[in-house]
Design a protein around this nucleic acid. Structure first.
Length: 329
DNA sequence: CGGGGTCAAGGGACA
DNA sequence: TGTCCCTTGACCCCG
């Protein structure tokens, strides 16, 4: 069981999400942003390895406008070596990685244009994993999409579009149960029809379900992953922010709640992405709890890293500006 | 120089 | 049909 967190490490002084406005697009800016993003990504991965966090969701914005027609720069070849170095590091340290294309990727949209742009975005994010030399266990996590007033039609459109995805993308796409529209049961139907693995989200399941007990839901979702082609099933873990709107993620990991949740596994192995607001802090806490419980978590730094990465004095200048002004100086 | 409006992109709830 | 929400960081304009 690997533990991870999404995209942002709040303890680090770099960002892998440097970008700029479409209106100010220029190849020079693109190169600068990607260079900074990849350098920061390397540092974050090395930080994670040192902390025993072996699962990580990379941000969608590594290449700004990565699937936008304005971006005609051959970043795939220009940064090929950089992606490969990162991929080698991931493999050498037994890391698990993924992307989560955001809400604009809607495969079941009735709009052909939106579907096409969505596929382009999947191709962009999948190609980064390809350039890293990672196999099909590195995933692209998406939602089913919209309801459009007809659940059956919405599901069948997803299946139809899924069938047309390029093989390289299809091998990586996994579908997540969501909290308002498509619960686990719908995802299971899609799996039966298309073979798409289900990335289970416990919090979404709590918000929307058909009465499946948590342990059963975990088992059902995990069974949709092919042990070798897809790897250990991934899941998202989070919990309700108390006193907030239903569906809002908690700010902190609640220890007892997490311990209780772990009891639902009954020996099942999954890689856990902690979607908690305070990011790596909660992920570290989760690792501590797993160790206290004697659950198998790979110890940090078992394989010696092929690169001596962090801190990287040769990292490009930080494009990011200081977080908070210090009152005096 | 810092605060805050805005940013490629979708869709649903609600009035 | 229009407004607000999700969810979030970061850009960058403007006072």
């Amino acid at each position: 069981m690997k533990i991870g967190y999404p995209c942002v490490n709040e303890a680090m002084d770099c960002s892998a999400a440097n970008t700029f406005r479409l209106a100010s697009y220029a190849d020079e800016r693109l190169v600068a942003a990607v260079t900074a993003n990849l350098a920061c990504l390397r540092r974050m991965l090395a930080w994670n390895v040192a902390q025993g966090l072996l699962f990580f969701r990379m941000g969608s914005g590594i290449v700004p406008f990565g699937s936008h027609p304005i971006n005609t720069f051959p970043w795939q070849t220009h940064f090929a070596a950089d992606f490969q170095v990162i991929g080698d590091y991931i493999k050498a340290n037994n890391l698990r990685v993924s992307f989560h294309p955001d809400q604009f990727v809607v495969l079941n949209s009735p709009s052909v244009d939106i579907v096409q742009r969505s596929i382009q975005e999947l191709i962009y994010q999948g190609s980064m994993l390809d350039l890293m030399g990672l196999d099909g266990t590195a995933k692209l996590q998406i939602h089913v999409g919209g309801l459009y007033g007809d659940r059956e039609l919405a599901l069948s459109r997803f299946a139809a579009v899924h069938a047309t995805l390029p093989a390289a993308v299809k091998a990586r796409v996994v579908v997540e149960n969501d909290d308002r529209l498509f619960p686990l049961r719908d995802c299971l139907r899609l799996h039966a029809e298309t073979g798409v693995p289900i990335l289970f989200d416990n919090f979404h399941h709590e918000c929307l379900n058909h009465g499946e007990p948590m342990a059963e839901a975990l088992r059902l979702a995990a069974a949709t992953w092919h042990p070798t082609a897809d790897g250990v099933p991934m899941m998202d873990y989070s919990s309700q922010a108390l006193g907030e709107r239903k569906g809002k993620h908690a700010d902190d990991l609640v220890d007892d709640q997490f311990r209780r949740f772990l009891q639902e596994f009954h020996g099942l192995d999954m890689d856990l992405m902690l979607e908690i607001k305070n990011k790596e802090a909660s992920a570290l806490r989760a690792v501590t709890i797993l160790r206290e419980l004697g659950l198998s978590v790979p110890a940090p730094n078992i394989p010696s890293p092929p690169l001596s990465l962090p801190p990287d004095p040769n990292a490009p200048p930080k494009v990011r500006r200081a977080k908070k002004a210090v009152s005096s100086e």
